[in-house]
Design a protein around this nucleic acid. Structure first.
Lengths: 153, 153
DNA sequence: ATTACTGCAAAGGATTTGCATGTGA
DNA sequence: TCACATGCAAATCCTTTGCAGTAAT
């Protein structure tokens, strides 16, 4: 591994990503680091197209299939999270920033709520069903304040 | 419409499905009723493959594209619900039976919980954010009791 | 009689896979 | 070295679309 790309400037909060990969029995390759870098820099949930675009910026020779495989590996070692909420395809994001979304079906607005607001519910599921919720990003659909209020558009 | 298929024996709880379709400006076709019948009989969330199999049982000439279009119409008039939680594709179910799932990422077991268990959370979101959650079927991923317990496989 | 709906076939987009080559450990 | 990872191309799977014939109203 002898690249001198922008990857060298990366400053991830989780600096143990190399150890994580090795611990999982995976090799540390520039492609995997570049993909990790990409989802770090894309705010929120990243589609494959977005990731591909950003990856291509650093190294245009990286293939889509490599990105898919890299994402599988990153998810396997817990560095990334895969989400299936968008009908257009899977989305990916950095693990660790647990948060959730309230998505308005009328105006499309998306509110972000911290994981703490789900804490009571998660505690209850653990007590009542012995189930530990691990979802990193949940999306709740519904109507926002403005769309619920009949006095507004 | 002159079929004498099993559709005639249908006993949906929502007997107003014909009115619903007409009210939406849609025509009442045997294909649409057969698709509605199919998702009524499939417990939980139905994949297109499942729906297709059941529909073919009643009328093998119905095309997949017709099923997709019928599902769009049924969702549009509020008789069915589309869900995007399965990476394999969209799933569909009869509207009205609000419930949610706890899906174990280790053993694959799926627990079903009634909507009431989310009531507190939904109430809080309404109070705090003015947001009314309408999701019909939520899926929470995590670990079930057996997989959390180290004394078992 | 209109006009929407269906079946068929083909296209489109996302994701996966086989394989020869390249490379991290 | 040598097993694992990559790039390329082709294949798969899910879903959508165009169109001419068919059926609901």
């Amino acid at each position: 591994m002898k690249i001198a790309r922008r990857i060298d400037l990366m400053t991830h909060e989780n600096l143990d990503y190399i150890e994580r990969l090795r611990a999982g029995g995976y090799r540390v390759t520039p492609q995997r680091l570049i993909v990790l870098d990409a989802i770090c820099e894309i705010p929120g949930h990243a589609s494959l197209s977005q990731i591909f675009a950003r990856v291509a910026h650093l190294d245009p020779s990286i293939d889509r299939s490599t990105i898919y495989r890299a994402l599988d590996v990153l998810c396997a070692v817990g560095l990334a999270t895969e989400t299936t909420i968008d009908p257009q395809g899977k989305t990916y994001s950095i693990a660790g920033a647990r948060h959730h979304h309230l998505s308005c079906g009328s105006c499309g607005q998306i509110l972000t709520i911290p994981d703490e607001e789900l804490a009571d519910f998660q505690r209850r599921m653990l007590q009542k069903h012995g189930f530990r919720i691990q979802s990193e990003h949940l999306a709740f659909k519904g109507l926002c304040r403005e769309c619920l209020d009949p006095t507004k558009g």
